[in-house]
């Protein structure tokens, strides 16, 4: 259950990205999580909610883009369709060993936020 430490790292990266925007309130954070990172998206979202609960950013949505690992055959030079939730042991065409590509992603992608001024405008409040 290391999703909480991963969520903390996502929050730290988010804060760094928002350094040029003082007072910004985060609304949505988009991350990419690979199949081979041993991170469970549902637990990550849960950890994220727990982490932000009671802070000004509570309710911020964590969008998790799931990046599956792919298998391809170096001999045939083409990707091979994996069975759902499973792996091909060898290339179905040539019987050769397959390589695994991708699935190692654990990246912060985008941060969406509102500035305090925008929120006042939205409320129709005069400044």
């Amino acid at each position: 259950m290391h999703e909480l430490s991963i969520a903390q790292s996502i929050l730290a990266g988010t804060r760094t990205a928002l350094t040029p925007y003082p007072g910004a309130r985060v609304e949505r954070v988009r991350v990419a999580v690979g199949e081979l990172t041993a991170i469970e998206p549902e637990l990550l979202r849960f950890a994220w909610e727990a982490l932000l609960d009671g802070t000004p950013d509570a309710g911020c949505v964590l969008d998790v883009e799931w990046r599956p690992a792919r298998q391809s055959c170096p001999a045939c030079g083409v990707p091979r369709q994996r069975p759902e939730h499973g792996w091909l042991m060898v290339c179905e065409e040539c019987g050769g060993a397959l390589r695994i590509e991708g699935g190692q992603e654990l990246d912060l992608l985008q941060v969406s936020f509102v500035l305090p001024d925008d929120e006042e405008d939205a409320d129709g409040t005069d400044r």
């Binding site: 988010t14 760094t16 654990l106 936020f113 509102v114």
Partner: peptide, 16 residues
């Protein structure tokens, strides 16, 4: 209006 910034970096950048 929400703004979006490209924040592309490894989540575990500090650890790395």
């Amino acid at each position: 209006m929400a703004q979006t910034v490209d924040a592309r970096q490894k989540v575990l950048a500090a650890n790395e």
